[in-house]
Design a protein around this nucleic acid. Sequence first.
DNA 1: AAATAAATTTTCAAATTTGAAAAAATTGCA
DNA 2: TGCAATTTTTTCAAATTTGAAAATTTATTT
Lengths: 213, 213
Amino acid sequence: MARPSVKAERTEEILDAFERCVARLGVEGTTLERIAEESGLRRSLLRYHIGNRAEMVQALADRYIKSSRTEACKMLASMPESETSSPLLDYLFIDIDEDQRRKILVAEALVSGADLYPEIKQRMNEWYSNFVMILCRIINVDYPDADATAQREVAWGLISLVFNVQMMAALGGGDSVLKDSRRAAERLLLSLNGHRSKPEPEAKLEASEELLA
Amino acid sequence: MARPSVKAERTEEILDAFERCVARLGVEGTTLERIAEESGLRRSLLRYHIGNRAEMVQALADRYIKSSRTEACKMLASMPESETSSPLLDYLFIDIDEDQRRKILVAEALVSGADLYPEIKQRMNEWYSNFVMILCRIINVDYPDADATAQREVAWGLISLVFNVQMMAALGGGDSVLKDSRRAAERLLLSLNGHRSKPEPEAKLEASEELLA
DNA sequence: AAATAAATTTTCAAATTTGAAAAAATTGCA
DNA sequence: TGCAATTTTTTCAAATTTGAAAATTTATTT
């Protein structure tokens, strides 16, 4: 080996730039030239380090799934052992910085563009299932007696609210929409009441370890 | 006038084709050439009847807003004078044919692409406000004692669920997602309980007439 | 310093997309 | 038929996007 490889770093830089573009312009609206400009690298380097357009999209989706999975696991692990509803809502609606907002927009863009890239369709499906599962586990802490179907309905509702509030935020509606979203999410969680009982901490720990393995 | 003008019909045909493309490929993913192919017309006719790319997008958004507004009013008018929750949920989740599904996907594409077209941003904002308002009026029939904030939260939740179920449907999840969505929507409506009382039919009629004016 | 492997720049061709306008064809009517 | 307004087809140029590979530079090892 003559010269130290920077392929790993460059790949990250390129995909970071790609994500920023996709969040604003969507998958189809993002040209290789634009990614190059955004990353401060030449277009030929995108090709050298990652590949052609299809391979770029593939790489973006791959990295997205992976990082999203570990991020979701971290979130699950950070939950308290009881009374998870409030921290969950904070995590989904309040503690959203620019990066996490972008991640959400990228997910939407990938789902929307999945028609064009069959491989991505499969992966986004797994990603979505995984997200629902994680949310169900957290919901289960406060509402262990709610049946799985009810938990899934609520989890799905939370995801829908998170997605849409970020999408609509592009219209510049201010944070009144954010407040409404969080309150609507709260309504969904509270709809599981009547099944409420004391949480079982050990269940949460098991789940966390299993997922991180 | 020597030859009867077909501009109105052609314009509709072109925008129909445009919508079909946008639902699948998004605004940025749709080329003029593709619209031409989809409509069975030559690209130069798009230009002749409507204009360049920016004007095409503008025309699409304009038509969308208008037709969506009248459609929402028809929906409002079709509601019974009491017990509106069930028909509302049917309308939003069950009675969705291919056309209406496309309309929803187009709305999402327009919102997502609003960053590129400042004029559209404004219009999609109005469109969204109008939709929320209509939903609030329907919700108000069954839950007149719920305060306006609560109604808006629920309306926003319903919209989020409708949007996301159609977006995720592209991943081919089957109709289990549809069922979950409808049930989650039901949970939101039921969360307004405690304020429930007998509906006031005349309120609904007033609203309808005012909107159609 | 020379060799070597990796990274970067440069360059070229092909395909696609869009804008624009001229030329031709169609239709109704005097 | 011939005029007139409208629609449609044809054609061309410019700009953008992508693919691909050659040439150059850079950094490490021997």
